[in-house]
Design a protein around this nucleic acid. Structure first.
Lengths: 229, 229
DNA sequence: ACAAAAGTGTTTGTTGTACACCCATGC
DNA sequence: GCATGGGTGTACAACAAACACTTTTGT
């Protein structure tokens, strides 16, 4: 079966930049291409948009198919439409960026047989198509956004310590922050709430665990509150 | 001539939200549709993307064709892909938002024979397709962005008074600002420079004219400067 | 001389920044 | 008992907010 149109149409695809954070740095999820073009090269997960789905749905579906990731924070990033970005034919791609808690979404390591792996963003291989560029735009967006919207929590487990949260900002923004000032500021927003639990299995004093209060954030938003770290 | 593909493809279009500012309020540029569907209804200027152009190029081309506007500040906004957003067939549209100095770009008034006109954003008619939604997203983006990036100047003539600049922020953000504080803050950034010219033909004391120094802005950016009004 | 908008400083409160030590726990 | 990170307060500087009158110009 084929489809015929009066005017030429670009193919429409989606690509996803999935960020995760581990104990050492910011990671991005890549897949190794099995098919031409760029067979064997690492690339962003993605694929073509079907006729009965939005680009958002397509992005979610592709991510799940290629990496098993489900129900994650996914946001439209930018649409890339350079005429020759795909050597086969004209493909316009809507890029998304996603944040996940890396522990909840372990994929197989780069060294095994699988073709999906987390790479440190500071140390990614050269990617297929214009994916290096897409990754660059995503990183910029993440840096710009994490400071003014409480999206960083998507990278952490439900319960987290204040040190983990500070590490998150220090890693993404590539700056050092003062521990006391950071705590004072973040707690004064009343967006994260103390739990009665503490860290387990650490070789030093266990830190208190906190949780992000999304309900409260929505309430404050309506009153004109501005998140800022 | 026709074009045949192995898989179905959505058509790809662009739509532009063009903002202008006059003495009274924020305006948006609309065109009245001549063809079905929605013949006679007001809509955002836009059209289909050709195979040899990026979506950015297409947006610029369509704007020039439909409204005569050239060389303006144009930025990708969002890609709209709801399955039924166009009643004819599946069309995915990449929306742009643009800022122009309305005096340099007079289009014919809504009342005459022409089919392009400026409407107050506070008082737009119901638009074709999902264009009401696109306009809403564009407004949000404008409000969010104008405060942290010096894009407001695109809405003003090259030479402007501080009162005009203040009026711009007050109008877009829908807030009142203190004249003395506003002046102090904006001048302390060293981004706008005094000229030796003053307003002409006003029935009161003429205000000094200023100009935005883009070069200086780029220099400051590199040093890690943050614009904020 | 009056109407209209331009232009100008000071005070007070709020927020950000810099900085160092004791505490609790596991080994 | 020591190594490791957890947790805490204060002083000073910078910035934001509130506020009213004089000046200039055209009619």
């Amino acid at each position: 079966m084929t489809f015929t149109y009066q005017y030429a149409r670009p193919a429409l695809a989606v690509d996803c930049v999935v960020f995760g954070l581990d104990e050492t740095d910011l990671k991005v999820l890549l897949i190794q291409r099995g098919l031409k073009p760029f067979a064997g090269t690492w690339a962003l997960p993605g694929g073509f948009v079907a006729m009965n789905e939005t680009v958002e749905t397509a992005a979610q579906r592709e991510l799940e198919e290629e990496t098993g990731l489900k129900k994650l924070f996914l946001e439209q990033l930018y649409t890339f439409s350079a005429v020759n970005r795909d050597p086969r034919e004209r493909v316009v791609s809507v890029a998304f960026f996603a944040l996940v808690n890396i522990d909840d979404h372990k994929v197989k390591a780069a060294t095994d047989a699988s073709n999906a792996a987390w790479f440190s963003v500071a140390d990614t291989p050269s990617l297929a198509f214009d994916h290096d560029k897409i990754l660059g735009v995503a990183l910029e967006r993440l840096k710009g956004k994490v400071r003014y919207q409480p999206i960083g929590f998507e990278l952490l487990p439900t319960l987290f310590t204040l040190s983990q949260l500070q590490f998150l900002y220090e890693t993404i923004l590539e700056i050092k922050m003062d521990k006391r000032n950071f705590r004072r500021k973040i707690l004064s927003m009343n967006l994260i709430e103390e739990t009665d639990q503490i860290e387990q299995d650490v070789a030093h004093r266990a830190a208190r665990l906190y949780r992000f209060n999304k309900k409260r954030y929505n309430t404050l938003l309506k009153k004109g509150f501005n998140f800022e770290v």
